[in-house]
């Protein structure tokens, strides 16, 4: 019998404790809420400076971007991608055609005719950004926010729009460059 009433008493007290907890939160809602009112407020992204001289490493995970002018077509990122969402096609140009240099002063030897990234397949593992010798493929935002604003909500109505095409040479231009010899070009591929 005493067990019976002890049980009821225990129930009532533990439930009251629980009610107290929720009431406390209800009362202190003004200082404790965690809601982010999304379209108006965005996630506060902390400064992402990495110590120990590693700030050339990219720690943000968002949309991939390629500075195509710096790309030398080495295909390292394509090989590093586990899901194969990067497709690069390069064309050999005649020896005497000058494709210009990258911002690292590397001479470009291959003409990148196709550089597609299917962001609907990307799994944001960041593996493609490390091997790039020119640091020209990176994820937008974070340490790169100087180059690009934060871009992690790139929604589209059509899945095809998630294929980002970075190469910017038209077929005619490819034709012209590959066939034209002995006409050194002073500037790089059209920006």
């Amino acid at each position: 019998m005493s067990r019976y009433f002890a049980n009821i008493w225990e129930t009532v007290t533990t439930l009251m404790i629980g009610l107290g907890v929720t009431l406390k939160h209800l009362w202190h809602i003004r200082r404790g809420y965690v809601t982010l009112q999304y379209p108006e407020e965005k996630w506060p992204r902390p400064e992402r400076k990495i110590g120990f001289d590693h700030d050339d490493y990219n720690v943000i995970r968002s949309r991939l971007h390629v500075d195509i002018d710096d790309c030398i077509g080495c295909m390292k990122c394509e090989r590093a991608c586990p899901v194969g969402c990067i497709h690069i096609t390069t064309v050999k140009v005649p020896k005497d055609v000058d494709l210009g240099t990258t911002s690292n002063d590397t001479k470009k030897r291959l003409l990148v005719t196709r550089f597609d990234i299917d962001m609907s397949e990307c799994m944001y593992c960041n593996l493609c950004t490390y091997p790039c010798p020119e640091s020209c493929i990176y994820m937008t935002g974070g340490p790169n926010s100087g180059k690009h604003p934060i871009d992690y909500e790139f929604s589209e109505f059509d899945r095809c729009n998630l294929i980002y095409r970075f190469a910017n040479v038209s077929p005619e231009e490819v034709e012209r460059i590959t066939t034209s010899s002995a006409k050194p070009r002073t500037e790089g591929v059209a920006a």
Binding site: T22, H25, I29, V34, T35, Q37
Partner: peptide
């Protein structure tokens, strides 16, 4: 929402 530290339905902006 308040008990769970949320704001619940909100409309602003």
């Amino acid at each position: 929402a308040f008990m769970q530290d949320r704001l619940g339905p909100m409309g602003q902006g």
